[in-house]
Design a protein around this nucleic acid. Sequence first.
DNA 1: CTGTTAGCGCTTTCAT
DNA 2: ATGAAAGCGCTAACAG
Lengths: 374, 374
Amino acid sequence: MMTRIIYLMKNTPAPAETGTVTKPPTMTLIARHAGVSRVAVHAVLSPRPGSNIGVSQEKRDLILKVARELGYVRNESARSLATGRTNTIGVIVQSLKTRFFTDFFTYLDEVCYADGYSVTISTSEFTSAREARHLRTMVSRPVDGLILAQSSPWHNDDLLEQCSVRGIPVVLLGGDDLELKFPSVAFDTAGAGELAADYFYRLGHRRVAFFHAGEAGDDSARMHNVRHSFFAQAWGRRSLSAPLALVTGDPAHGGIQAAAKLAALAPADRPTAVACGTDELAISLIYALRTAGLRVPEDLSVVGCDDIPAAADPGIALTTVKLPTDGLARQAWQLLSRKLHGKPSTKGGKHSKILVPPELVARATAASPPPAAL
Amino acid sequence: MMTRIIYLMKNTPAPAETGTVTKPPTMTLIARHAGVSRVAVHAVLSPRPGSNIGVSQEKRDLILKVARELGYVRNESARSLATGRTNTIGVIVQSLKTRFFTDFFTYLDEVCYADGYSVTISTSEFTSAREARHLRTMVSRPVDGLILAQSSPWHNDDLLEQCSVRGIPVVLLGGDDLELKFPSVAFDTAGAGELAADYFYRLGHRRVAFFHAGEAGDDSARMHNVRHSFFAQAWGRRSLSAPLALVTGDPAHGGIQAAAKLAALAPADRPTAVACGTDELAISLIYALRTAGLRVPEDLSVVGCDDIPAAADPGIALTTVKLPTDGLARQAWQLLSRKLHGKPSTKGGKHSKILVPPELVARATAASPPPAAL
DNA sequence: CTGTTAGCGCTTTCAT
DNA sequence: ATGAAAGCGCTAACAG
């Protein structure tokens, strides 16, 4: 029987692994082992960014050596209690089933890590109660800052009020409504419409369509409708003829009906270019157009929106308006970290609202219209 | 100028919001306001599961009232320091781009919350360094327990050793290799092969195929090959003819070539049923078969594996072997929470390895073979 | 059944 | 440059 258990703690938790469970080493222990003071250990193991001085090189090396041998890992609970900060920022999003949110989290984690922060994420699963519960645990951990992607109608105002009172900075993600209470970052959807319209116009297109999945009543349909509206406005600034609206309720397969509708039009009436609410929709449309015998981009140009991975697939090579999630994450963190360092985020009483500009990714599905179509 | 800032803390962080930032209320403050002792406040606000007694009802009500008015939220850093526990469990997975992991996290969060724990997740993005860094922050927070989905080759043994020494229980997710060091939970892949083979055999099929994406050299290909091997073994126990192997490198569109191959076979040689490595592949195959003029399930039965949401789509109605992620999360938590409560997880010196059984979801893509084909 | 006391491990201030 | 001491907010012993 090799199992030997050393009970050192007052409330020793029962050993979780078969083996020897010991009390984790503390700075005090390291100080004893190295024959130096606790403060010296602290100075070496938790150096303040500015003051690098204070301990001689040999002492420093000794301390690091002992720490390594003992397997020292700083106890963040204790550190947090003493400093009042946790170096953790909390993120609450609706769901991790949306690729956008997982990308955002991954990028954010990267950029936060570079600044010494870690990120913890929770999902509201579209319910206010779950959001509240996660907000509460984050306030009580406490996190140093919060990034929230709220669904529109339900605001946990009391908890957010707590954040304000406690000085926990909050940044909203894509918030259309709460801008008054907190600063926010969002994609520049208007700019995306502008970009697509401009691109079509400059390629020479004059009859265009916008294809989107705005029929369901959910958040995603709302997004499609917003994108449609911005594209239509942008196009309206350039051309007399409003874009033809193609609407579906099925973001995955809706392209089939839309392609049928387009194929049924006389070439002289048919739009020469179609902007789509999402890349997913654009890809569905392109497949259906090919099946229907229409060539892309020879007969019809198509651009998507988002720049999902499938858009880059050589079999598609979708020209698209990229909404850069990495840029969004970077901006969110920049805004938040400014507030963490006490810089105000209001200008003239209004909270900053940062819009991240879209980028046009030109691949192979958009070109100038055929002369015959003009 | 309405802004008034109250500096109460020694190291007052600069105010993050325009407004009044105050020191958060503590139990001591509540005790003062309510005119009771701190212990009474503690007994009411952090009741021990067993001992519900200790404070009179009116005092209790008063404390709760004051706490609410003051916006009290318990400081978990302090609680953790005092108790040595954080009520947090850490999860490290490869990526959140895999639907499986996000589902797992969501289910796990649900079941952990019910037991008073919260979950924090990090991704290794398939690099050992990133895993190490997240492991380190989790050990130092510290988390009470850890669930790890490790990629095969790189183990951060030193850090895991730290977990053992500190008594932080670890549960592995789908680990094939580390079973010796830690208990693990995984899908019963062998059982899945068994289930599919059994289903085909009982429907009357005698010539079958297994279609998988095992050509790339990555983790996903490895999974496909394992599934193939288990199906082949299970089939071998029932029939003399080995299943025809259809292999692709493209999990998204590989069905096209496979369907072509199947369509080219003489009906008497053609398998009457195809099991697929994933639902994604099965769906790709079904679309391609339809295009090639083969009816499913009249000419050919198809079953998938996983039960992804698209499999339930009425346009597909895929019969599939469901790998229940919710069950996996439940088992992982059960195993971990047993260890949290000090129950050993070894039986006869070996760590437990829990296999979660698959379930056959019968929809519309599998049926008995046509008499003519027999 | 209430109150007093002594820490948890770390940071920070102040004195040497 | 180094050491001593106080305290973060909470919990868990023990005494009244």
